[in-house]
Design a binder for these strands. Structure first.
Lengths: 193, 193
DNA sequence: GCTGCGCCCTGACAGTGTCAAGCCCGTCGG
DNA sequence: CCGACGGGCTTGACACTGTCAGGGCGCAGC
């Protein structure tokens, strides 16, 4: 039964940040929405950051799903990269608050939360394989091409989420943005050796 | 005289985030460091966000200095872009907390602070000119090439600041990172038409 | 029948941003 | 010379936060 409370707290926490941004999350408000006392969350999580870390872990698992859905092995490497970049950006836009949380290390220091870190590593490994081909060993000889595709996707997603693009390029429909994103990704990705 | 208090509060605020991250900032602690009461800041700023907005404005002015220092008109366009990207990333690394603050719209909503927005726009205009050449009119026909160079620089800087690069690629010296950054920037930037 | 423990509660504390009100002192009009 | 005024800063209070301390209730096992 008690897992009900745990999942209710997580659900309430995610709703809070989805509805009103990262600053809207508080343990006491999450507890209120889960209809438990302000101390009940401490029975399942050692502290505030651990609640968020669980959301981050789930987030990276969802991101993994997005990215792997976009990469069927039959295609060329360039096409896979393009679809993976689009999937990364689509995830960011469809889960705005969660994406921000996943990359804000002053809110969740991933080094303190091994399960979240493991999930993040799995997503990252998907990207590495798409760039350099299947490589079971974790070693990365040349980071530059991997960084190039990751940076472009992450940079675009970040600038969009922080409102810099609407702000500077004017309002556009989501459809138009998708078009522009594709163009940018396609412009840049074939450039790596 | 009273400007002394104002600048002392700003100085204390910047020190706080520099020393212990964005979460370390509080009005009361900044007031304490400025040796004034916890309400003195309200005499100069309407609220907490306005203090941070002033830091953001100063930050964008510094970023503008970094970027324009890297673009002397005699060079080729590609070289200018490369140096500007490096300057952008160098600014981020030399002012980690400030850079984060400048791009966190849930901490400072730039739309509510016209002076900060104006400073941000000036930096942005520098980038636009470097990509499409001098264009006094604010109109941007094709956002894709501008977005490409901005995203790569912003993505690299963000991933570095959030600790994702050390974390996944291992520890490297700042010198090595600079080398890798240059390589990435050079890989990507010539790719635009 | 007693003990222990999982599960959840109430209560308290220091810290926060912000509203309200007051105090000190230089300036200025009469 | 004196009284009102207002800029610059203060103390006090409020609701809210995360977290520590401790209690109570119901069930399992001895």
């Amino acid at each position: 039964m008690s897992d009900d409370v745990r999942t209710a707290i997580l659900k309430a926490s995610l709703e809070l940040i989805d509805e009103n941004g990262l600053r809207a999350f508080s343990m006491r408000e999450a507890a209120r929405r889960a209809h438990v006392s302000h101390q009940a969350p401490y029975h399942y999580f050692p502290d505030r950051e651990s609640i968020l870390a669980e959301l981050v872990r789930n987030g990276f698992e969802q991101l993994h799903t997005y990215m792997s859905a976009g990469s069927t092995p039959a295609d060329t490497a360039a096409e896979r990269l393009e679809r993976m970049g689009e999937a990364y950006i689509r995830f960011a836009i469809e889960h705005r608050a969660l994406f921000r949380l996943m990359f804000r290390d002053e809110m969740v220091d991933i080094g303190h939360h091994p399960e979240a870190k493991a999930a993040a590593d799995r997503s990252f490994h998907l990207l590495v394989e798409a760039v350099v081909g299947p490589s079971p060993s974790g070693e990365i000889a040349d980071p530059a091409p991997i960084l190039a595709v990751w940076s472009i996707a992450h940079g675009l997603a970040s600038l969009e989420l922080e409102g810099k693009l609407q702000h500077l390029f004017g309002e556009r429909t989501p459809q138009e943005w998708k078009q522009i994103f594709s163009e940018v990704v396609r412009t840049v990705i074939p450039a790596r050796g």
